[in-house]
Design a protein around this nucleic acid. Structure first.
Lengths: 168, 168
DNA sequence: AAATACTTTCAATAATATTTGAAAGTTTAG
DNA sequence: CTAAACTTTCAAATATTATTGAAAGTATTT
C-alpha cells in the first residue's frame, strides 16, 4: 500500500469512528488529515484534500480549535491562515475525554442531582427503584470523574510508562 | 418534584446523552425506562410510556438485548414477553465499554494494522508523519485495551471499593 | 386446525444533521 | 482610501438516520 491510499483509508476510517461516537464525520476527517500532515495546512488545502466546501471546512476547523485539538499557525510573510493538530496522542485522548465530560456528562450529572430531590411515599417500589438507580449512577459518575482527573494528571506516564502495573 | 416528572426528565436526559454518544435516542430512552422500573415491562408498556411505535420498540429492545443490557423475562402464566434491564451500574458501564470496543474500536485497530504496512521513501516527511501517527495511535489503543480488560476484571471493587487509592 | 394473541419485518415517511455556496465581513497591501 | 485576499456566516439544499404502521410471521389456546 502506498502513502496516498493509506492516508485516504486512515481519514475515511477515522471519520467513521467519529460518527459512531457522535462526532461529525467531516470534523473527524479534518482532524485525521491534520494528524498525518507534517506541515500546517490552509483551509484551501483541507478543502481540496477532503473535497469539502469552504464553509464546512471553516466550521469544523473552528470546532476543532474549540476542542483545543487544532491550532492556528501564522507563517511569517504569508497572508493566509494555517492549521496544525496536536500530534501527541496522549494529549489528544485526554483533551477529548475532558471536553466530552465537560460538555455532555456534566450536564447529565447536574440533572441527576436535581432528580435526587424527588419526594414521595417511602415504601413505593417505583420510587425506590428510581432513587436507587439515580444514586448509583451518581456514585459511578463521581468515581469515573476522579479516575479521569487522575488519568489526566498522570500525564504521559500511563501511555509511555509503567502506570498500568499499578493495576495488577 | 414528583416521581412521574422526575422519571420523564431522567428518560429524556438519558436519551439526549445517548444521542450525543452515537446511540439511538429511543434505545437510550427504553434503557432508561427499564433502569428505573422495578418490575419487568412488556412491549406494550414501553410503547405507551414512551409514546413510540410497536416496531420501534421491538427494534430497540432487541438491540438492547444484543448489548446484554436488557433481558427477556418470562412470567409464568403470562403469554406476553416482558423485559428487564441490568440494574447494576457497574455491569452496565463495563458492558457498554466492552461492546463499543468490540464493535467500533477493534475495526479501527484492524485498519491501523494494515496501514502500518505502508511502504515508501524513508526520508519523506509525509510518510514519517503518517507512520508516527499510526504507530502512536496503535500504541495508545493497546494500552487502553489492557486497561479496559483490567477494569472489567476488577469487577465491582473499583466502583464500591478502594481501587481508586491505587492511583494516588 | 383455526382463531387468537402476540412479535417481527421493512418499505414508506418523517425527523435530524450535515453540507453547500453565495453574500457579508474582515484584514492587509498598495 | 479602496481593491484584493482571505475568512465567516447562514439559509437553503442534501444526505443521513430514525420511526411508523400495516402486513407477514410465530406461537399458543381451544
Amino acid at each position: 500500500m502506498n502513502l496516498p491510499e493509506a492516508k485516504a483509508q486512515f481519514i475515511q476510517s477515522w471519520g467513521v469512528l467519529g460518527s459512531q461516537w457522535g462526532i461529525n464525520r467531516t470534523m473527524a476527517q479534518v482532524h485525521a488529515l491534520l494528524l498525518v500532515s507534517p506541515e500546517p495546512l490552509s483551509a484551501e488545502d483541507i478543502m481540496e484534500q477532503l473535497s469539502v466546501s469552504r464553509g464546512n471546512t471553516n466550521m469544523n476547523v473552528r470546532e476543532l480549535m474549540d476542542w483545543d485539538l487544532v491550532n492556528k499557525v501564522i507563517i511569517p510573510g504569508e497572508r493566509r491562515e494555517y492549521f496544525t493538530a496536536e500530534k501527541d496522542i496522549w494529549k489528544v485522548a485526554t483533551l477529548i475525554m475532558y471536553q466530552r465530560k465537560k460538555r455532555e456528562l456534566d450536564p447529565m450529572v447536574k440533572v441527576l442531582n436535581q432528580l435526587s430531590e424527588v419526594k414521595g411515599d417511602a415504601d413505593n417500589a417505583e420510587l425506590k427503584a428510581f432513587t436507587d438507580t439515580v444514586s448509583n449512577i451518581k456514585k459511578f459518575a463521581g468515581q469515573a470523574e476522579k479516575t479521569l482527573d487522575t488519568i489526566i494528571k498522570a500525564e504521559e506516564n500511563w501511555f509511555w510508562g509503567s502506570f498500568i502495573k499499578l493495576f495488577k
